[in-house]
Amino acid sequence: NEGIDRSLVVLGALATILLLTLVALLAAGPIMRVLGAKIEAVITRLLGVLLAALAVQFVIDGVKISLG
């Protein structure tokens, strides 16, 4: 019974995250239209830099782990 309760909690959390993601994706278009093209370009570049930094960090962590 406790295992079922835990599973239901996890499924509830997953459903909540899926719903929040759906709301964010549906709201992204109207928000970007309000902010304008310049702000959209700035946000895109900032997120690109963040993604690149994360990728570099993952490679560094992988090299550290593989070397010992």
Score class of each variant (00 low, 15 high):
41 A>K: 04
3 G>I: 00
26 L>M: 09
9 V>I: 03
44 T>W: 09
53 A>V: 08
20 L>P: 00
13 A>N: 06
30 P>D: 13
28 A>Y: 03
51 L>W: 07
33 R>I: 02
27 A>L: 12
67 L>F: 15
10 V>P: 00
35 L>S: 01
36 G>R: 09
3 G>V: 02
46 L>R: 09
33 R>A: 12
64 K>A: 11
38 K>E: 14
63 V>E: 01
41 A>I: 06
62 G>V: 13
52 A>M: 00
59 V>Y: 03
16 T>Q: 11
33 R>H: 08
50 L>H: 10
6 R>M: 12
32 M>F: 02
44 T>N: 08
7 S>W: 14
42 V>E: 11
48 G>T: 10
13 A>W: 01
65 I>E: 03
14 L>C: 04
46 L>Q: 06
3 G>Q: 02
8 L>D: 04
58 F>Y: 13
13 A>L: 02
10 V>W: 10
6 R>H: 03
62 G>N: 07
30 P>N: 10
15 A>P: 01
22 L>P: 01
45 R>N: 15
63 V>Q: 07
53 A>T: 09
31 I>P: 02
18 L>P: 07
37 A>N: 09
54 L>V: 15
2 E>C: 03
4 I>C: 05
63 V>K: 04
50 L>S: 12
53 A>I: 06
19 L>P: 01
48 G>A: 05
57 Q>I: 04
36 G>S: 14
9 V>L: 03
31 I>C: 05
26 L>I: 10
51 L>S: 10
60 I>S: 00
25 L>C: 07
14 L>R: 15
14 L>P: 02
56 V>G: 06
1 N>D: 13
23 V>R: 09
23 V>L: 04
14 L>Y: 11
60 I>Y: 06
35 L>M: 03
55 A>E: 07
32 M>T: 15
15 A>N: 01
58 F>C: 11
59 V>L: 08
63 V>S: 06
54 L>Q: 14
58 F>K: 08
34 V>R: 14
32 M>I: 14
21 T>V: 12
15 A>E: 01
53 A>R: 11
44 T>Y: 03
27 A>G: 08
57 Q>N: 13
28 A>K: 05
60 I>A: 14
38 K>Q: 07
5 D>Y: 04
45 R>T: 14
5 D>R: 10
62 G>R: 12
60 I>H: 11
66 S>K: 10
17 I>V: 02
68 G>R: 00
13 A>M: 01
38 K>R: 04
28 A>F: 07
38 K>V: 12
6 R>K: 13
19 L>V: 07
55 A>K: 05
1 N>F: 11
42 V>C: 05
36 G>P: 15
16 T>F: 12
55 A>S: 05
51 L>T: 10
4 I>P: 00
6 R>V: 11
30 P>R: 13
43 I>D: 04
4 I>G: 00
56 V>Y: 08
